[in-house]
Structure formats: C-alpha cells, structure tokens
Design a protein around this nucleic acid. Structure first.
Lengths: 194, 194
DNA sequence: TCTCAAATGAGAGTAACTGTCAGAATCTCG
DNA sequence: CGAGATTCTGACAGTTACTCTCATTTGAGA
C-alpha cells in the first residue's frame, strides 16, 4: 500500500478547488462568460496549471470517459434474464446507492445540455458510454464486439438515459430521476412499440 | 417568382467554392492541420468572408441542422403500419433516390466520426435530428411532443443510423450503406431483442 | 446613370489552448 | 537530516478560432 503522500493530496485538493470555483463561476455568470483565466485566478493557480489538470475548459464539468453508473450496472448484469430487463433492475439499483446531491446534479445537467459547447462534450461522453456498454455486453453474451445489434441496443439505452435526464432537468427535478429512467427502460424492455 | 439574380448566384458559388477547397485541404493535410486562413486563401476570399458563410470551421463539413434523409422519411411515413416498419421502408426509399457519390460520402463520414472536433458536431447534428424526428412523430400520432417514448424511439432510430454509418465507413464501404441500415432497422422493428 | 442595400476585406481584439523553460516543492535514499 | 533526483508550478511567447467595426466595393432597381 502506498501511503497517500503529500504530493497526491495536494493534487487532489487542487483539482477539487479548481472544479469548485469553476462551477460556482459558471453558475454565477454563465459558462461562456467565464474565462479560464478567471477560474485560475479564483482557484489561485496559474492558467497553465488549469490546463495541466483539465485538458479543456469543458472537462471541468464532464471529466469521466464513460458514465460510471451505466458501466457499473452493465457489469452487475444478472444472468438468465433478458438483457433489457436485467439492465433496468441493475441501473436502478446502482442509482439508488449512488445519489449525489440532487441540487448539484440538476445544475450540472442543465449546464451539460444547455450550453452548446458542453452539449457537444456531453454527447461525446454518451458515445463513449455506448461503446463501453456494447463492449461489456459483447463479453457477457459472448458475441463479436463489432456486432451492430449490440451498438444499436446500447444506443437505445443511452437514448433512454439522456431523455430521462433532459426531461428531469426540464421539469426542475420535481420528481426523482429514477422515475423517468424507469419509465424509459420499461418502454425499451417492451420493445419500443409505437 | 424571384429570378435567381446575380447576387444569389455568386453567393451560392462562393459557398460551394469554399467548401470544395476546405474538403480538399482536409483530405490532403488533415482537418486539424488545416487553418481557416488557408482555406480562405485557397478559395480566394478573406477570412472574414469565410465566417460569414460558415459560423464555425466544422460547419464547412456539416451544415444542415437535421438530417434531411431521416426527416423526409418521417414525413413520408405510411399510415396504418407500425411506425418502425413504416420508417424502415420510408428511409430506404428516400435513400435510394438520394445517393450522393459514395466516395465523397465515405470521406465525409470518416471525417465526421474520426476527428474529435467534428465528432462533437456530428453528435449535435444527431441530437437535432432526434428532436425533429420526435416532433414529426408527435404530429403524426397526435401525441404530446414531450412524450418521452417518442424521444427514446427517435433516439433508437438515430442509434441505428449512426451505427450503420460508422460500421459502413469502418469497412470502407465494401457493401452499400443501405444494407447496414436495413439490418439495424429490422432489428429495431423486432423490438431490440438481446 | 444614379442611388441604396448588401457583400466584402482589412484590421484590431479576445480567449482557448500549446510548448518551453527556469525555479520551487516534494520525494528518496544514504 | 541533507543532497540529489523527480515532479509541480508559473511566466511567457505563440498559434488559431472567432468577433466586431468600419471603409470600400459590387449588384439591384428606378
């Protein structure tokens, strides 16, 4: 076990500080109206350092490559059940244990889908999640990872996810996110009848 | 009837010229390595003019808001059939009459999904198409445009579309795009069993 | 031909990055 | 604990996408 080490600690703290100030400033004056220099100044680091921690301005808001909730759910997929059903259960289970403060999440979601620059990054994020999901499913089902069906299916799951998030944030979170998500996953499970 | 008019003609020509030179340069030296100034110089216009015709560099490659093929197909949706089936027929019909040179399309597709900047724009494009599709479906079916099912369904159609394009371009177009698309839409029609 | 509106080009300015380099902070090992 | 190796940081210069403004040119219509 390597002890944390002062260097690691400081790095983690700096990263957190930058993100906090950035999100605060975005909330106060808007994403586009906030410059990296301002964030750096507020966080008391140089602009160079900002870019050492985050490759681009939008990565402050969205950093992970694939959504951890969906990936965890896919890994926890029960066997012997139709995938859509299993995924629905797994996602809701993971989401249940994994609840960040609803207020923050609402603000982030609004940013992620509202600001044009961030929307683009959000969608890249969704694409990465789709790929991860398809990969895990390929492994679980013993199929060729290039099988288009896996990708179409994973894309549909992402559509359910994105639609739930957007609707939830559009309605200011009056009802819990899980409800919207469950409705969409149930619809997917039913085979998307129209 | 407004006659074409010299002004309109020149505008159309300038737009086409800029795009042609841009795509040529992108193919020659890559998207990121080509600057707007170089495109402007090649097209014999000032950089200012470039931005009057295209709001951003990536709009040279992807300009429309929603994919015209999918939108046209949705509008041509036959009645009385399940939507997935009708859409499958309509899309293939539209695609049949609407075949741009496969080589160009392949190059554009590779750019659109390969270059990170463009991938982001491509996905925005997909999102706009999803919204348009959901809107048309709402009208056709007499449903609330906010109905999440419409958006999940439209998202799944987009997933079928995107997956087909990516696979097609990854395989260098050895088989026609319509084949991949048909396979994915058939899978969607079957209710995405896994 | 003359006048008005639209298109263009030139130039200055902003902001997101990128790369380099010297100095400071941390770690490691004797 | 102290010296040397390693890593982090800030300063700075440079590139590029994009914005705004203003003077000039070009096409449209009387």
């Amino acid at each position: 076990m390597t002890s944390p080490g002062l260097r690691e600690l400081k790095k983690a703290r700096t990263r957190r500080t930058i993100r906090e100030h950035a999100l605060r400033l975005f909330a106060e004056r808007g994403y586009a109206a906030t410059t990296v220099d301002q964030i750096a100044e507020a966080a008391e680091v140089s602009p160079s350092t900002f870019f050492r921690y985050f490759p681009t301005k939008d990565h402050v808001v969205l950093d992970e490559d694939a959504d951890p909730v969906l990936v965890a759910a896919a890994r926890a997929l029960p066997e012997g059940v139709p995938v859509a059903r299993g995924l629905r259960e797994a996602i809701l289970a993971v989401l249940d244990g994994h609840t960040p403060p609803a207020g923050d999440m609402l603000a982030m979601t609004r940013l992620a889908f509202g600001e044009p620059d961030l929307r683009a990054r959000t969608l890249e994020h969704a694409l990465a999640t789709e790929a991860a999901l398809a990969g895990i499913l390929a492994e679980r089902l013993g199929r060729d990872p290039g099988d288009m069906r896996l990708h179409v299916f994973a894309g549909a799951v992402l559509a359910a996810w994105v639609t739930a998030m957007r609707t939830w944030s559009a309605e200011d979170g009056v009802r819990p996110l899980a409800e919207y998500l469950d409705a969409n996953l149930a619809y997917l499970e039913a085979g998307l009848p129209l």
